[in-house]
Nucleic acid binder design. Structure first.
Lengths: 110, 110
DNA sequence: CCAACACTTAGCCATTACGCTAACTGTTGA
DNA sequence: TCAACAGTTAGCGTAATGGCTAAGTGTTGG
């Protein structure tokens, strides 16, 4: 169980930064080049590129370079995989409440 | 838009650590004391306590001390709030696909 | 009453994160 | 052809992270 923690570590870490979340959000609307993505941020390009690489390292985005231009796109499968963690978590949590309900019903019945 | 980034930052950061995710998962099954929570981890207590405080600082858990014992419980609302980010994200993404579909349909119709 | 218990505080250390500037590489439009 | 463009590499500085040990505080069971 849970021998794939590292991917989750990387994904959550990547999403912990507002710049990176904004990039993910932007890419949700379609592909974009690095320079285009960088425009809204008051940050030097090398700094911004680090964010891109973190996102790519986390498998949240994909990028490829054609000529001198690098284009990025969202990998929504990875995003979905992270979201799944919450689903699993809620399943445990709801199951516990179910058990509590059962217990209460049982106590009531006696 | 997005003036509550800091809470998300903290929450995602908190969840980026496997120890802390495990604690959240454990607390999904019900309240537990700090010492109980610490058992599965090969880590000194002060180190473990830092994780607890990070989780609490992120609003993912709540704790209160009675006598010498501190008991922790999950704050599932916060967890749900983080999960919502993915929902919002997917909404954007799916809307885009909807738009693409519309475009394709339109092109086809001509 | 006092030793054991359950944290808690303080402080140290190594590593990683995230920003910067300066200088470099390869591509391309005029 | 060559200057402008789009990134990239290298290296630096500060701050935060995540671990540790040692010693302290307040509570409690026997």
């Amino acid at each position: 169980m849970e021998h794939n923690q590292l991917p989750l570590d990387r994904a959550f870490h990547a999403l912990a930064d507002p710049t990176r979340r904004a990039v993910v959000q932007r890419l949700g609307q379609g592909e974009a080049t690095v320079s285009d993505l960088a425009v809204p941020f008051d940050m030097a390009l090398p700094s911004f590129m680090k964010h891109i690489r973190v996102l790519e390292g986390a498998g949240l985005i994909d990028s490829n370079k054609i000529g001198r231009v690098r284009t990025c796109k969202l990998k929504s499968e990875t995003l979905a995989a992270v979201e799944k963690w919450f689903g699993d978590q809620r399943a445990i949590w709801e199951n516990r409440h179910q058990n509590l309900d059962n217990l209460l019903a049982q106590l009531k019945g006696e």
